[in-house]
């Protein structure tokens, strides 16, 4: 990851914390001041989707042309994406407790997100259960593509076909959740970019550590 992207990530996140608490937000019933959680809860999901997408791309590249690097990229992007997803679900539960009345409401988007996370957890279970390295990489690459294909309808399609309490779901699937008002967009988009970049940064460190470990093992075997 390029250094300027890391600097950008830091700048965007610092801006998010300052602007996220100090800038104007619309006064709405029920959510009240908790509307500011949007700047932190939603970017977790954006980050997760981007990292899973990167993971899938590397899985496809692996199947085209197998290499240890590509498998490593796929695994670590998925790993970091899963962490962001878990943070997304926990922050969502806290928020739901105060606005919907209970942490788990059976909201279609909430259920879909939980199933998507379980699908991705199974990816790691699969990896852990195959001994042979090449087989593990190939099988999990195929599964990873399936997992991404399953996540998209679970999070983006099904919640919009029924009524969901998440904004932007049920009825008009357009970006009406960002009816926000331009004031909130001013913080929301930089927040999304900042959290995505932080996720990619952390993933890049995990990738480098894994590659280092592999290099070291190769040295020992020589």
């Amino acid at each position: 990851m390029k250094t300027w992207l890391k600097i950008l990530a830091v700048a965007l996140l610092i801006y998010t914390v300052i602007a996220g608490f100090l800038f104007y937000v619309p006064r709405l019933n029920i959510v009240n001041e908790t509307i500011r959680a949007l700047y932190f809860h939603v970017p977790m999901w954006f980050g997760m989707v981007v990292l899973f997408l990167l993971s899938t791309i590397h899985s496809i590249r692996y199947l085209k042309n197998p290499s240890f690097e590509r498998d490593t990229y796929a695994v670590e992007y998925a790993n970091t994406g899963l962490v962001l997803g878990l943070l997304g679900i926990f922050t969502g539960m806290i928020w739901a407790n105060y606005t919907w009345g209970s942490p788990w409401h059976g909201d279609p988007k909430q259920n879909g997100a939980a199933i998507a996370l379980l699908v991705y957890l199974a990816y790691f279970v699969l990896r852990g259960s195959v001994e042979n390295e090449d087989q593990r990489a190939r099988l999990s690459a195929v599964y990873n593509i399936f997992a991404f294909a399953a996540m998209i309808p679970l999070i983006f399609v099904i919640p919009r076909m029924t009524s969901s309490m998440h904004p932007g779901s049920g009825g008009n699937p357009g970006f009406n959740m960002y009816d926000l008002d331009s004031n909130m967009r001013l913080v929301f988009y930089p927040a999304v970019a900042g959290w995505i970049l932080l996720g990619v940064w952390i993933a890049s460190l995990r990738i480098r550590t894994r590659l280092l470990n592999e290099k070291l093992l190769n040295l020992e075997n020589e």
Binding site: L13, I14, V17, I18, F21, L22
Partner: peptide
């Protein structure tokens, strides 16, 4: 609140 969060971040 902002100061505390900034320190942690």
């Amino acid at each position: 609140v902002v100061a505390i969060l900034l320190v942690i971040l």
